[in-house]
Simulated scan of single mutants.
Amino acid sequence: MGRHRRGAPREVTVAELIEELRRFDPRLEVRLAIQPRMPQEHAVGTVAEADGMVWIGDAGQRGYAPDEVGERLGWL
């Protein structure tokens, strides 16, 4: 999800995100990982629709993500 076969970025739809999240225990917390060279952990904030898209707000940095996060996301 999030990349084409050749690594070119692509847009993710709401349906694709929901399908991807269904693989996980619904009781788990959700975090955003940003900055591949030194992954940071951010909490998910408000979700809203504007300008023909769904936006997921950032609720602030919680710290740095463990190395395992970068590895599983294919960043390391």
Results as ranks from 00 to 15, higher is better:
Gly70Gln: 03
His42Gln: 12
Asp58Arg: 01
Leu21Val: 05
Pro66Cys: 10
Arg23Val: 03
Glu16Trp: 05
Pro9Ala: 09
Met1Ile: 00
His4Phe: 00
Gln61Trp: 10
Gly70Ser: 03
Asp67Trp: 12
Thr13Arg: 01
Arg3Gly: 00
Glu20Cys: 08
Arg27Gly: 08
Gly60Tyr: 08
Ala50Pro: 04
Met38Ile: 08
Arg37Lys: 14
Glu29Ser: 15
Pro66Ile: 03
Pro36Glu: 12
Arg27Val: 09
Ile56Cys: 04
Glu11Ile: 01
Glu20Ala: 15
Gly52Ser: 11
Gly70Met: 01
Met38Glu: 11
Ala59Tyr: 04
Ala15Cys: 03
Arg5Ile: 00
Trp75Asp: 04
Val54Gln: 07
Glu19Trp: 05
Trp75Ala: 07
Met1Phe: 00
Ala50Val: 06
Glu49Arg: 15
Ala43Ser: 10
Leu28Lys: 13
Pro26Glu: 07
Val54Ala: 12
Ala33Tyr: 15
Ala15Met: 04
Asp51Thr: 08
Asp25Met: 07
Asp58Val: 03
Asp67Met: 10
Gly63Leu: 05
Leu73Phe: 05
Glu20Leu: 09
Leu28Met: 13
Leu73Pro: 02
Ile56Lys: 03
Val12Phe: 01
Gly45Asn: 11
Ala43Gln: 09
Tyr64Asp: 13
Ile56Gly: 04
Leu28Cys: 13
Pro66Lys: 10
Leu17Arg: 02
Ile56Phe: 11
Leu73Lys: 08
Ala48Cys: 11
Gln61Ile: 13
Glu49His: 13
Leu21Gln: 03
Ile56Val: 14
Glu68Phe: 01
Asp51Val: 09
Pro36Gln: 13
Leu76Trp: 09
Gln40Thr: 12
Pro26Arg: 06
Pro9Asp: 09
Val47Glu: 05
His4Asp: 03
Leu28Ile: 03
Glu19Asn: 13
Ala8Met: 01
Arg62Tyr: 00
Met38Thr: 08
Arg22Leu: 14
Ala65Val: 05
Gly60Asn: 11
Arg31Thr: 05
Gly52Tyr: 01
Glu41Leu: 15
Gln35Thr: 14
Glu20Lys: 10
Leu32Arg: 07
Glu68Val: 10
Gly57Arg: 03
Trp55Ala: 08
Gln35Ala: 15
His42Phe: 07
Gly52Lys: 11
Pro39Ala: 09
Val47Gly: 07
Val30Ser: 07
Gly7Met: 00
Leu21Pro: 04
Pro26Gly: 02
Ala65Lys: 01
Arg22Asp: 12
Ile18Asn: 01
Met1Cys: 01
Leu73Gly: 07
Gly57Lys: 09
Pro26Cys: 07
Ala8His: 01
Met1Val: 02
